[in-house]
Design a protein around this nucleic acid. Structure first.
Lengths: 200, 200
DNA sequence: TAATAAAAACCGACCAGTCGGTCGGTATTT
DNA sequence: AAATACCGACCGACTGGTCGGTTTTTATTA
């Protein structure tokens, strides 16, 4: 129901914005530069987005939705939970590969979320959803027997997420210092291994 | 050999800057606001620091030096490595407690380091030193027998640091969502436990 | 110890430049 | 012709940093 040209410029604005946000961060990214990179005037920009923040939020939400879909796609198999977790690590490797140019925006998300209430609400809700999903997986693992742990799955789920977040951020800050894909796999392996045994 | 008043205003500028950097981030923190909060004029500011960035770097280096000293203080005991690692987790808890107000600056460090070469060099060198120290500890653990792992200690050291970083950042973004001290201890326990056993 | 000169610390009005955002108008679609 | 898409000069607010001048501290004399 909508104009082709309009949609095209909108996409150009978004992808230019991702680029500039990655390079400069939210505050230092100027609307003028985004427009220039997108080959579009300021008028067009503010025709599509009421403000810089709105654009940022739109990008966040698109990103989160995509991650959500990826996780969904990986979940429904019938392999044991312990194996599914390791498979998810391989999904992280994918993230490193084909979103590596956009990785710095993940950092920017967290930064803005920690300071701006609007961003926080948009970012955090799905974030907690991820944690809930992991916790549910762990519970399922308990009942199916591939995971034996006595303590609560909630905390363990946060441990997994904290590790994943840590690896991602290290990958942003020190991209060439270590092979982060390997380290992601190794750490996840250690955590899963620990969960497969009962705590004395 | 130096002026008392001068040192005092310098300290006031620094602590005001920490506050503002935490609240607003580096870019959005204005020199004027820092000055106002410190009860000091702009002239005084630029008398003590040649630029905003210099001040930021000074704060980073002070912070890193402090962390380094803490780690040093915890290392030299003669307990097994596996236990020493768990003790370090308790050091993280300390960080959460008494530096909790300044935690957001850790995020800011990483952000700026990922974008500004000067900041990167200042931040990253000591960072890698931490990793080296952990790796050395793990090697020592192998020879002393409290740790049995076949693969390289370098990667494992990065796993530990990635997890620690992840927990810290989660604590910044979601301070009230979970008990991060507990989660830090739990995750570290899992990782150490995994390293105490030989891989299949 | 008091006077004094030099140096260091500090003040705040000011500057050039950038920012996000506006708006009256033009081009393109429907 | 009406609506949507787009243009770009322009605006007020604010930025990091400067600079000529004042106050305070320190060092040096007498």
């Amino acid at each position: 129901m909508t104009q082709q040209r309009s949609e095209e410029t909108r996409n150009q604005i978004v992808s230019a914005a991702v680029d500039v946000f990655c390079r400069c961060g939210y505050d230092a990214a100027s609307v003028a530069e985004i427009c220039s990179l997108a080959g579009v005037s300021k008028g067009a920009f503010y025709h599509h987005f009421p403000s810089k923040k709105t654009l940022f939020l739109a990008i966040i939400q698109g990103w989160l939705r995509e991650v959500d879909e990826r996780l969904n796609a990986l979940r429904d198999s019938d392999v044991p939970v312990s194996q599914a977790l390791l498979q998810m690590t391989r999904a992280i490797e994918t993230v490193f590969s084909d979103a590596s140019g956009q990785l710095p925006m993940f950092l920017e998300f967290m930064v803005q979320a920690s300071r701006d209430k609007t961003v926080w609400e948009a970012t955090i809700a799905p974030y907690q959803a991820y944690q809930s999903r992991f916790a549910a997986m762990l519970e399922q693992g308990k009942t199916e027997g591939s995971i034996q742990e006595t303590e609560d799955a909630q905390a363990s789920a946060w441990v997994l997420i904290a590790f994943a977040v840590g690896v991602l951020l290290q990958g942003v800050v020190l991209p060439d210092t270590a092979d982060w894909k390997t380290i992601a796999g190794r750490g996840m392996g250690m955590l899963v291994e620990s969960m497969q045994r009962s705590k004395e």
